[in-house]
Design a protein around this nucleic acid. Sequence first.
DNA 1: CGCCGCATGTAACGTGTTACATGATTAG
DNA 2: CTAATCATGTAACACGTTACATGCGGCG
Lengths: 170, 170
Amino acid sequence: MSLRHALLGLLADRTASGYDLLKLFDTSLANVWPATQSQIYSELNKLADTGLITIAAEGPRGRKQYALTDDGLAELRRWLTETEPQRNVRSEVLLRVFFLGVVSREQAQSYLADLATRFATEENTLRELENAVEWDESDLSLYGRIALEYGLRFNAMRREWAEWAADQVK
Amino acid sequence: MSLRHALLGLLADRTASGYDLLKLFDTSLANVWPATQSQIYSELNKLADTGLITIAAEGPRGRKQYALTDDGLAELRRWLTETEPQRNVRSEVLLRVFFLGVVSREQAQSYLADLATRFATEENTLRELENAVEWDESDLSLYGRIALEYGLRFNAMRREWAEWAADQVK
DNA sequence: CGCCGCATGTAACGTGTTACATGATTAG
DNA sequence: CTAATCATGTAACACGTTACATGCGGCG
């Protein structure tokens, strides 16, 4: 049920249409909680039905500008403080590593070395993103930078681990 | 489509029944690729239908002992070497951090401090697991330890990040 | 003989992805 | 005027979770 709260969270900052939210997902939330257009639009309708958001204004081309209601903000706060985040375990990378025994040691080693390169690339991508974003003094900037720092540390850790693992396989 | 390959991977080591595999998922794969009983049994039937595994023997209580076929091993190798692991991004923890602006700084700070504690606990759990497992010289032990090391480093990294983040919010 | 564990199967529901479908507005 | 962008909606399918359902076999 996190998509619903992601939408509430974005609408807590400012009002937006489904189309606006779609773009926000593709930019700021792409690395945290991706969502498709189809998912966003249907969830918005459900949220409007249950009164957590309302249509604050309608624009050209059938545009619906959604706004968070008091109930919606309460629900967002409740989710944040009173519910446990379910730990997100599934890792396809680890699953593959688990079964590297079915290929040769040489193949396994180069597989892990490739992984290290991949993680290094992702780290660089995030670093470019960090430089491209215009950070300000808002809460979204503060917590956005904290989330980005997580990504940087995560990829650095994974790169070092993959290098270490490649060495272990030798 | 990773569940299918997880099953193939486990059957590459030894033959097993659905029930055996279920227990393997709950122990060795619980932190990598969880699966439910219902999912495992229906996927096994599909794999048997497509000839990637076969029923090597039948036992009491309708027990079906599955074995990997040559096709199955080939498919496992193909998946491992020729397909790209899709990066697993969704993180409920990060999503929550993103929206910490809707609660007070004090609440946000204690939220992050709690996270740090949680990660430290998980790290300890994994360390106990590491000591409890009887590691041998097999491939599964080698790659199992590599996967576990990932978990240890991951939680250490997250704990340090959460501590840093709590400090940033001050 | 009765209970626990072994062993499998399926139905209902929620979430997520891909693809199709349609149309209005605006910038060049 | 026409192409790109804005803007929303829905259908089909894949994957995952929860719950229900059933029965055999071995151990005490």
